[in-house]
């Protein structure tokens, strides 16, 4: 009995994984054709960047500003006295640009846009809009998923850059009320430890997180079969799976980049 249950679970999970891999392959294939086709979906892409990127800039900048200020106030005197200024700037770059910037931005995007994408596509499935697209010869992946996939990925890269700017420079201005550091000293200190590898690592993380969030959210949206009651469930699954996959991807990227960044 137990073996039957285990076998059926295993078969179902295997089918799901293959389906997800096939879905991801279709998304990448259609994305490669997106620019070439110059479809009407370009407008959808712009609106996706608007909703996912521009509208999230307030919360992202606020978070980065607060985080940068906390790290500078807490770390400047203690870390500089204990381990030297270079270590302080290294910690600032590692925390804000390389680690927390992409991860926290991804979390915000999951909470805002991941749920929105899953819910929207789920509603479309329930209201037979997807079938309507297919019946008139429009590929739903090409028209619905690809703009969201590109939009979320581009927005995440841009928001991560804003996060770094606000976390490193705007927070410097806010800390002047508490800790007096000359700007030239601060700027030179950051530039002396900032490396191209750190910037590339940060941007690569954003791209991968963007891929994960958009694909997971769309995939779960399409998993709705017919009832509106399934929509909240798939939205929750989209969030949970996106969080988990982003953290695992971050771990893999840290393992890949740590030998390069330690130089």
């Amino acid at each position: 009995m137990f073996l039957d249950w285990l076998g059926s679970r295993f078969r179902k999970k295997g089918r799901d994984i293959f389906y997800a891999l096939g879905f991801t392959y279709q998304v990448f294939k259609e994305t490669a054709l997106f620019v070439k086709r110059r479809q009407v979906a370009f407008r959808v892409l712009i609106m996706q960047i608007f909703f996912t990127g521009f509208e999230a800039i307030t919360i992202v900048s606020l978070l980065a500003l607060a985080l940068g200020t906390i790290i500078i106030i807490q770390g400047y005197s203690s870390l500089t006295n204990l381990l030297g200024q270079k270590f302080f700037y290294l910690m600032l770059i590692r925390l804000i640009t390389v680690e927390l910037g992409p991860v926290l931005t991804a979390f915000i995007i999951i909470a805002r846009s991941g749920t929105a994408i899953a819910t929207e596509i789920g509603h479309m499935v329930v209201s037979h809009e997807i079938e309507a697209y297919i019946s008139v010869g429009i590929n739903p992946i090409s028209y619905l998923v690809v703009p969201r996939f590109l939009g979320v990925s581009i927005s995440l890269i841009i928001l991560t850059l804003y996060f770094s700017f606000f976390g490193l420079f705007a927070s410097f201005a806010s800390t002047q009320f508490f800790v007096t550091i000359p700007f030239t000293e601060y700027f030179q200190g950051l530039l002396s430890v900032l490396s191209l590898q750190a910037i590339i690592s940060s941007l690569l993380k954003s791209v991968i997180f963007g891929f994960i969030i958009s694909i997971v959210a769309s995939y779960h949206g399409f998993k709705v079969s017919h009832a509106p009651t399934e929509i909240p469930k798939v939205a929750i699954n989209a969030v949970v799976h996106s969080f988990a996959l982003c953290i695992v991807a971050d771990l893999v990227l840290v393992l890949l980049f740590s030998p390069i960044l330690s130089v």
Partner: peptide, 13 residues
């Protein structure tokens, strides 16, 4: 003006 806003948003970054 979503097009312009998005353009500016990307360009500044």
């Amino acid at each position: 003006h979503a097009d312009k806003i998005v353009g500016l948003f990307v360009l500044v970054a």
